[in-house]
Amino acid sequence: MQSRIATPRKEMSQGALALIFSAPAVLIIAATILVPFGMAVFLSLHNWNLKRPGRERFIGLENYTDWLRDSDFWDPLGTTFTFAILAVVVIIIVSLLISLLLNERFPGRGVLRALLLVPWAIPSVVNALLWKWLLNPQYGLVNAIFFEFGIITEYQNMLGSMPSVMIWLVIAYSWIHIPLATLLLLSGLQTIPGDIYESAIVDGAGIWQRFLTITLPLLRPMLSIVVIFEMIFALKVFDIIFVLTAGGPADATNVLGWQIYTETFRKLDFGAGSSIAMLLGAITLALAILFYVFLDKGVEQ
């Protein structure tokens, strides 16, 4: 919006003002995001291992072609997608159910909505610690509850084997991600005018029919945004893996985030680590664009 007041002559142009006002923030962002990004591209094109100093040299795309031929890339990629898809599905279904509940009027609704912020505020590392305790093979609450209800006959190491480790990892991860998704979906639900439902009721539409023909189509733009957000987050999962499973057992939860970490900071191969990180970034970006175009088209129809 341009000001309707004529600019006094002594004042500088809007462009110059914009430059000065945004300079501190832009400089900080450039120094810590753009410059490192350029360096990461540089590193990914080099043989750069801290264990063998003095042997750094330019190797072109060799790091990339090496990864693309290596099961150490494809296996974690598959694990990452398994995890991300499961997590997004769980998060979307549960937060849709919760937001439908919180969209109803009933005493206590405000308190419930506020308490959603409890899991949201828990840092991912503490969340991992919490679930490590809940899932403890000898003393964990989950084992105790399952045992008392007769679901299992003896205590088990839930994080010790597939597929249970993946299931519990998804549950633990989703627990702190559901609240934000719920709040977003709830705000989407609240934009749907109530009289649409009323006229549908007059027309004799049942609850399930109303959900399919009114709620879901009108919620679709918000649903698309949440799916894209959650997918981007889930693809770069790292914190919870670090504390809860360390990629194990036997690489069952070795996602790309963990692979990058071990490659770079344990094996100290910065070139290989940078190139696999670039691959993850490219995949994430491509998916975000694909989803955006695909889901956006769906909305228009």
Partner: peptide
């Protein structure tokens, strides 16, 4: 540019940042 900077995975930036 400000928005797009959020799309770069932190892990890929972490490598040069730690090095520097």
């Amino acid at each position: 540019a400000i928005l797009a900077s959020r799309l770069i995975p932190a892990l890929s930036l972490a490598i040069p940042i730690v090095l520097v």
